[in-house]
Amino acid sequence: MASTSERRGIPAAAFVKDVHDFLLQYDGNPGTCLTALQEKLQQYKLAEMKLLGQKRDLLAKIPDMRKCLQIVELMMHKKGNQEAMTMDFEVAEGIYAQAEFRDTETVCLWLGANVMLEYKCEEAQELLTRNLDTANKSLKSIVEDLHFLRDQMTITEVTIARVYNWDVHQRRKQRAIRPEAETAVA
């Protein structure tokens, strides 16, 4: 993970070895440094939300694709069977009608954009399986992206905590050296 500097346009968070050296980038001011880090964390969170949305969409789509595939498989299963199958299908919400379904070679798939195409059952099965595969693959890559993002967020959070602790520690040291400064600040 350390070697990747970015993934899908998401920049990796740099690991800070030494807080003191790191702060030199911000003129040694922990306040500006913390603000910058918080901002970065927000950006990561935004990217995470976007990815989580994509993941949710896919998770909703995959069961639908499975349903289509199930129907086609049922049709293929019944092939060669002379007896007609009876089905109840939904005409409108809550209203069902009965249909008799006989041995068939073909099935029509709704491709979107007002297009429906007739396929052989085998071809339809292949197409639907391929679509399902693609969806599963993109889901997997989104999950990996999310893992990467989570790591970057953890690194940033840990860095924030460390800069904060460093600052507290520094102040304590100063107070220990100049106790009179404490009363001045208070």
């Binding site: 349903k67 199930q70 129907i71 049922l74 109840d88």
Partner: peptide, 11 residues
């Protein structure tokens, strides 16, 4: 019985 496949109930 009616068995749900996809969105249709198959007898």
């Amino acid at each position: 019985v009616r068995y749900l496949v996809g969105e249709v109930f198959t007898h």
